[in-house]
């Protein structure tokens, strides 16, 4: 496991994810991916599900990846990486590994469409078979590459093109699927949530390093604010991510062995959810008087979930 010291040391790491990709200005995908691939010194094999990340980092004839990288369909990023891992294990057993001194880590990246909805069966299957890989979900709460359709990760009240706001509708009506807990229920040895940015960089890097050094299927759910479809200014990406943590809309925690929950960051003063919602254009309709009950509903749900996490941490079962 790579020791994550301070940022000054971490910044000396040679980058394995180059710039020049065509992600939007201010997109958090780049920050998360760089931190994850820099959090280990071992060789990496990466598979990426279709999504913003795949489309923007491998536009022919350019590639942004300085590691072995495989593009695979929307639904089978986890299946692809588990196949690569099984082959590597078989070849090492027959002493035909390409370099015996080096360890190889397997990582799959998927957007929330490729993880929460379409790729969930292959992720569930790979986890159940117990392959040794890390799956990172870049959660931008919708199908943002195709113009912002809803996914099962979209929170209540958000405006998307398939759950539009208007006279009769207040936006998305279903609550966000709690995928981190679902993955913990699979019995993964390590499951965590993370956000990008300068305040919680160490949290993310340490979680990635820990997940990569853990044997068995591991999962990180990283919130990735989307400047285009959440409708905020590109320079606010890090602030929005921090606000999501401070308001407990996206609490930072980790679960070991499927049950031992630790909250890794507790905000000193829990901010009201309005602070987070008012910064994004996709929630602007909630501040009309007829929709104020939706905000109250969101606040109630956030409080309940935060209470649940704290109780679960105390109980330690």
């Amino acid at each position: 496991m790579k020791n994550i010291g301070n940022l000054k040391e971490f910044a000396c790491t040679p980058d394995r994810f180059q710039g020049g990709h065509r992600l939007c200005p201010g997109c958090a995908h780049g920050m998360i991916v760089r931190e994850v691939v820099n959090a280990t010194e071992d060789d990496l094999v990466i598979s990426t599900a279709t999504g913003c990340l795949e489309v923007c980092t491998a536009i022919y004839p350019y590639t942004s990846w300085d590691v072995s990288w495989l593009h695979i369909g929307f639904e089978n990023a986890a299946a692809g990486i588990s196949g690569a891992e099984a082959m590597y294990k078989a070849l090492s057993r027959k002493n035909r590994s390409y370099n015996e001194d080096k360890k190889v880590k397997f990582v799959a990246f998927g957007g929330d469409g490729g993880t929460y909805d379409i790729g969930f069966q292959s992720l569930s299957g790979a986890t159940e078979r117990g392959h040794d890989f890390l799956y990172v979900c870049l959660d931008n709460e919708g199908y943002m590459n195709t113009g912002g359709q809803r996914s099962s990760s979209t929170p209540i009240g958000a405006h998307t093109t398939t759950s539009p706001r208007g006279r009769v509708s207040y936006g998305e009506k279903n609550r966000k699927k709690d995928l981190t807990m679902i993955m913990a229920a699979h019995g993964c040895p390590y499951v965590a949530t993370a956000v990008p940015g300068s305040k919680h960089w160490k949290d993310l890097a340490q979680k990635a390093a820990k997940a990569l050094s853990t044997v068995g299927p591991t999962f990180i759910n990283a919130l990735s604010p989307c400047t285009t479809e959440w409708k905020f200014k590109p320079q606010d990406t890090v602030e929005i991510a921090d606000l999501a943590v401070e308001t407990c809309m996206f609490p930072l925690y980790e679960i070991e062995d499927g049950h031992k929950l630790t909250i890794t960051y507790k905000p000193k003063q829990k901010l009201p959810v309005e602070e987070y919602l008012s910064r994004q254009g996709r929630f602007s309709h909630l501040f009309k008087p007829e929709n104020s009950w939706v905000i109250e509903e969101i606040q109630k749900e956030v409080d309940r979930y935060w209470e649940y996490l704290q109780r679960k941490e105390e109980a330690g079962v």
């Binding site: 910044a11 710039g19 020049g20 920050m31 300068s198 990406t237």
Partner: peptide, 15 residues
Amino acid sequence: CDFCWVSCPDSCFLV
């Protein structure tokens, strides 16, 4: 402090 390095989405800070 290297905050800009870690939060730059395009890895354009020369270190």
